[in-house]
């Protein structure tokens, strides 16, 4: 061709921009050897900052004042109130996670697919829980679902109230994680491809979109679960003996036992994060996890 068509020219321009970007990227890691000490120092510093309090906590918890002992931990684990609280917390966390995913995943899909215009609005709405203090949320929940509920439903005595509250509270994490996953695949194009092959909306969501965004959905689920497991304010204000509330109560009478439970809950969280990392690593390295799951 003697003259490129406009389309070609645009593509070529695009590539040129990318090439420039790549060059910049290549130059960036070049640094003098003396400087490589600094990142190492930062990492060590951060590690100490994070680990020292944990060591202190553990050494306080697992001793009787002089010697190392597992007694505070075994005592705490044997407490029936611990069992009740952890069961309640886990139950609420599982329920909230399920409800959240069932609501957030299809909503996020539909927003990307059909209602792009309200995307910005959703971005804003879903971070509101960050800026609204839990006390306001509690009062609101009481107003809407309490004895004088305009909806005519009194949920104050039901853990379902907590599930509703926690759904809102974890929305910044769940929606963001799922929405990012939706942005990562070409939702619109894949949906059209699926429709062109005769599939309806549900089928497309189940067979194409869900497997494609599975990683984001798993992250959302884990984030939701851990958020709920550790939430104190809302449960306390609404009068539920969830695990964090129990922990707080125990601390007054038996600080060593409470502290040993903190270590336990840390470990639960770590297990969650580790699971997330493993799934992420496997999905990243050849997306095998994604495929098997699909």
């Amino acid at each position: 061709m003697t003259a490129p068509t406009p389309g070609v020219a645009i593509e070529a321009g695009h590539e040129a921009t990318q090439a420039i970007g790549a060059q910049n990227g290549r130059q960036a890691p070049r640094s003098r050897p003396g400087r490589s000490l600094l990142p190492a120092l930062i990492i060590v510093g951060a590690f100490l900052y994070y680990v020292l309090p944990l060591i202190a906590t553990a050494s306080f918890a697992l001793s009787d004042g002089r010697h190392f002992t597992l007694a505070p931990l075994t005592d705490a684990l044997g407490d029936p109130a611990f069992h009740d609280s952890i069961t309640l917390s886990a139950g609420i966390a599982v329920l909230t996670t399920i409800v959240s995913i069932l609501i957030v995943a299809p909503t996020s899909y539909l927003i990307v697919l059909r209602f792009r215009r309200i995307r910005t609005l959703m971005d804003f709405v879903t971070i509101l829980p960050f800026v609204i203090p839990p006390i306001i949320l509690t009062l609101g929940l009481r107003q809407v679902y309490g004895a004088d509920s305009p909806l005519g439903v009194d949920l104050v005595d039901s853990p379902l109230l907590l599930v509703a509250g926690y759904f809102v509270l974890s929305l910044p994490f769940t929606y963001r994680a799922v929405d990012n996953a939706m942005r990562a695949i070409d939702v619109v194009l894949l949906t059209e491809a699926s429709e062109s092959l005769g599939a309806g909306g549900l089928r497309t969501f189940r067979s194409v979109i869900l497997p494609g965004t599975l990683l984001g959905i798993i992250s959302a689920a884990l984030l939701c679960f851990t958020t709920v497991m550790g939430e104190f304010t809302l449960a306390s204000l609404l009068g539920y003996a969830t695990f964090p509330v129990f922990l707080n109560n125990v601390y007054a009478s038996a600080p060593r036992e409470a502290t040993s439970l903190v270590i336990v809950s840390f470990m639960i969280t770590w297990a969650g994060v580790l699971a997330l990392a493993v799934v992420g690593r496997r999905a990243g390295g050849g997306t095998t996890a994604l495929r098997r799951a699909a």
Binding site: I185, E192, A193, S194, E195, S196, G198, A199, P211, L290
Partner: peptide
């Protein structure tokens, strides 16, 4: 609607389903 027209489409970027093998992609319809 598109899914009832019984037409086939090849998209500019192919739009293959990334979570399915070549055979599964072909089998989908």
């Amino acid at each position: 609607p598109a899914n009832q027209r019984g037409m086939g489409m090849v998209f500019q970027g192919y739009a293959l389903f990334p979570n399915m093998s070549a055979a599964d992609n072909i089998e989908y319809g």
